[in-house]
């Protein structure tokens, strides 16, 4: 079992997310059983695991969409399951969440999708300021020409990019990516991987990237956390994690590359 912090120098850095002893179950199904995790400022942490291993549940607990059964989840020093809704919402504005399917609002075009979080949260925001922010994030995801298109007219990769743009619109300090390359062709996957790295450099974000794609994990994560049986089996640099003798990790690695 690897340490949660691979580089001792990182300990000196500010912790933005800290999770201790996290447990979560649905009816009789135990999904997370004792997760410990630390995310430092401006760090990319990739959580790898099989489908149904509880990766997305972890992100939903961090954003307060789900409540943990047991354990402490701190974001910017605040315990997300104990704070008021107002506090939680102001915390959420510092977190960007990119959903697996993009989760764009079907009834709104790209402009309205991007404007929605701004106009709903900042009542006195100037229309010019909204337009400027939208143009900036669309430029960051290289989809400026799609500004007035409906989500149904976009490809899977474009929807994910717009989803990332919407997450960036409130200038978050933490980005959470749920399966950013799932269902995409290899070329589009590489474009999304590049975009995740660009976002980290341009916006100085700390990120958790949930994936089962080793190429994505290797190219985006400063650290990798391998999730299995509700726990982190190994945490560390990519090479360290996959030099493990744990059969579950070896199996995951071999299966991914055979595919």
């Amino acid at each position: 079992m690897g340490s949660f912090v691979s580089d001792p120098e990182k300990e000196k850095l500010e912790t933005v997310i800290s999770i201790e002893g996290l447990y979560k179950s649905f009816d009789d199904l135990q999904v997370l059983s004792g997760i410990d995790l630390i995310l430092h400022r401006q760090e990319n942490l990739t959580v790898l695991g099989r489908s149904g291993s509880g990766k997305s549940v972890l992100l939903k607990i961090i954003t307060g969409l789900l409540k943990p059964d047991k354990g402490d989840v701190y974001v910017f020093g605040k315990r997300v399951d104990k704070i008021s809704l107002t506090e939680l919402n102001s915390l959420r504005l510092r977190i960007g969440f990119s959903f697996q399917s993009g989760a764009l609002y079907d009834s709104m075009n790209v402009y309205q999708n991007l404007a929605f979080p701004l106009t709903m949260n900042y009542k006195n925001i100037d229309r010019k300021e909204v337009k400027r922010s939208i143009e900036e994030v669309l430029d960051a995801v290289a989809l400026s020409e799609k500004i007035y298109q409906m989500p149904a007219d976009l490809s899977g990769g474009q929807r994910k990019r717009i989803g990332i743009a919407r997450a960036l619109i409130t200038k978050p300090e933490i980005m959470l990516y749920d399966e950013p390359t799932a269902g995409l062709d290899p070329i589009t996957s590489v474009e999304i991987i590049d975009l995740i790295n660009e976002v980290q450099h341009k916006y100085n974000t700390s990120s958790i990237i949930i994936t089962h794609d080793l190429t994505c994990a290797k190219n985006t994560g400063n650290r990798i956390a391998m999730l299995g049986d509700g726990k982190f089996l190994q945490v560390g640099k990519f090479d360290v994690v996959f030099s493990s003798n744990d059969e579950r990790i070896k199996g995951f690695y071999n299966y991914n590359f055979i595919q």
């Binding site: 939903k60 954003t63 969409l65 919402n89 102001s90 959420r92 504005l93 977190i95 969440f97 959903f99 697996q100 399917s101 989760a103 764009l104 609002y105 079907d106 929605f116 979080p117 709903m120 949260n121 919407r166 409130t170």
Partner: peptide, 10 residues
């Protein structure tokens, strides 16, 4: 997940 997206956007 559009409802979740709305919730995480505060």
């Amino acid at each position: 997940e559009q409802i979740d997206a709305m919730e995480v956007s505060a």
